[in-house]
Design a binder for these strands. Structure first.
Length: 499
DNA sequence: TCTGGGGTCCTAGGACCC
DNA sequence: TCTGGGGTCCTAGGACCC
């Protein structure tokens, strides 16, 4: 029965920016890294007509579509819009599995909507879920002003294929019995888990379509791709996909990484950046109320070769000093001559408890001290993080971002629409006035940065519910100009304001 | 002026234990 | 004197996804 729904917001980041900035509606908009090493996160449909797509180097996008608006992402804003959307989905069913800010599965059988579906014939179910999908798309447009595409089918894979076919701004329900005929002629790339490498592998074996995967048979696929991959691929190709919709999965790792605008060659600077990233990673870890045992250092060299080094501690930690120390030690074993393009620090092997809990546990075990009490917590005793690490003070991160630091992440890459990062780290790629950022001018009101440089900043003054606005240029130290929070999207996208 | 940042899962080999 | 088999944990790398 078609009771699994997949929702996918159309060109989400770009669509949010267009809803936020009236002058960009109907125009090509590209959201992503705007520095020399940036890539496209989302291209609006207008930009896609020029051949621009996700994951393309922004430099190439600029060649293909020089007149597009190039904006740095504002994740805080996207997250807020996303929460509105996910809230609508949870009204359909408690079983909602977000895949990203703009995508989610919903199991309609698990929710209130199951009453609407109970006891219906297959054709009636299809009709009923079509109604649910229609209402959902309308609700989301009312609540956010944005277009969503919806697919409904009997499995996750098919629901996702359905929403893909529904794009843009559509609804597709795959009726029971039509699945095989629909899948057969599609390219293997349609199947989840088949990327460029697997597709090439299969192509060399003469397999290009889903039907050919099925003809090859499970044994052959396992021979070609290995046990897990081969078996799951065969199942998918034959339309068998019983993966359940799973709400709220706990994260298994947390990381922070930066690509630099210019490769780092100075070892001291590499060390400083590793400390910065360790701090950032731990901040996220703690925000999530987690701790972890395995510290991972990632290094991408000038030639794009990438390596990781990891170390597993005796007990989970969320101590910045321990993570920093460990990452620095791992760095000592890495040759960075020739230059470093990217650095990353991650923590895996996450535990649900924080360090404070551990200490509390250990303390409780000591006081309780009843014979067998010396297990679990005691195993880590003496190895407790914080106690384990030498220095008790954190590394000197204040020195991390020297004026020479050129970081692709730019303002919003790290802060994502929030404040551009604590401590006034030096930002490149537009600094304080990065393109797309909302601002307020004492006399001209609300607007956004269209561009900056050479001591000037150009602002377009408009709001989500205003007509397209005018552009003015200021000195970038103009006292009347200040950063501002994004305004709500909706009023502007509802019927034109009466003014 | 090629190639982001946040993740997940799988594999393979070695250490170690029973 | 030669040499089990299974299981778990760890490390490193790679494919994939959005």
């Amino acid at each position: 029965m078609p009771t699994i729904l997949h929702l996918d917001m159309d060109a989400f980041y770009a669509a949010v920016e267009q809803a936020s900035k009236p002058s960009l509606r109907g125009r090509p908009v590209i959201v992503g890294g705007i520095g020399p090493r940036g890539v496209v996160a989302t291209a609006s449909y207008e930009a896609r007509r020029f051949g621009v797509h996700s994951a393309m180097a922004t430099a190439q996008a600029r060649r293909l579509c020089p007149n597009a608006a190039y904006l740095a992402p504002r994740f805080d804003l996207y997250r807020r819009v996303s929460e509105t959307v996910m809230g609508r989905l949870r009204e359909l069913s408690p079983l909602v599995e977000p895949l990203s800010l703009d995508e989610a599965f919903v199991d309609l059988e698990a929710g209130g909507e199951s009453d609407r579906l109970a006891g219906l014939e297959p054709a009636e179910v299809a009709e009923a879920v079509r109604g649910i999908g229609r209402e959902l798309r309308r609700d989301i447009r009312l609540a956010t002003g944005l277009a969503a595409s919806v697919g409904v089918a009997g499995s996750k894979m098919l629901a996702k294929i359905a929403s893909e076919r529904a794009k843009p701004d559509g609804l597709v329900v795959i009726e029971p019995g039509t699945e095989r005929a629909l899948l057969g002629p599609l390219t293997v790339r349609t199947l989840p888990g088949v990327g460029p490498a697997t597709a090439e592998h299969l192509r060399r074996a003469g397999i290009a379509t889903v039907a050919e995967v099925e003809e090859a048979g499970e044994a052959e696929l396992i021979r070609l791709l290995g046990r897990a991959h081969g078996a799951s691929l065969y199942a998918m190709a034959t339309g068998r996909d019983d993966r359940p919709v799973v709400a709220e999965r706990d994260a298994k790792s947390v990381s922070a990484e930066d690509t630099f605008e210019v490769d780092l060659t100075d070892r001291a600077q590499v060390r400083a950046e590793v400390s910065r990233l360790a701090e950032r990673c731990v901040r996220r870890l703690r925000d999530a109320g987690r701790s972890g045992r395995t510290v991972v250092l990632k290094v991408r060299r000038y030639d794009f070769s990438t390596l990781t080094r990891s170390d597993t501690l005796r007990a989970p930690t969320d101590d910045p000093a321990v993570v920093t120390e460990t990452a620095q030690r791992l760095l000592e074993g890495v040759d960075t001559t020739g230059g470093v393009r990217l650095l990353g620090v991650g923590v895996a092997g996450l535990a649900d408890f924080t360090q404070e809990d551990l200490f509390a546990q250990a303390a409780a075990a000591r006081t309780a001290d009843g014979g067998t009490g010396a297990d679990g917590a005691a195993a880590g005793d003496g190895e407790l993080p914080g106690a384990a690490a030498g220095p008790t003070t954190g590394p000197a991160v204040g020195a991390a971002a020297g004026p020479g630091t050129a970081r692709t992440a730019g303002g919003p890459g790290a802060g994502a629409g929030g404040p551009p990062g604590p401590g006034g780290a030096v930002r490149s790629a537009g600094g304080r006035w990065w393109p797309g950022r909302d601002v307020r001018h004492a006399r001209h009101g609300h607007g956004w940065v269209q561009g900056s440089g050479l001591g000037r900043v150009t602002v377009r003054f408009e709001e989500p519910d205003s007509p397209p606005g005018r552009v003015r240029t200021f000195r970038d130290d103009d006292a009347e100009l200040e950063p501002a929070d994004p305004l709500p999207l909706v009023p502007g996208v509802l019927p034109p304001p009466e003014r």
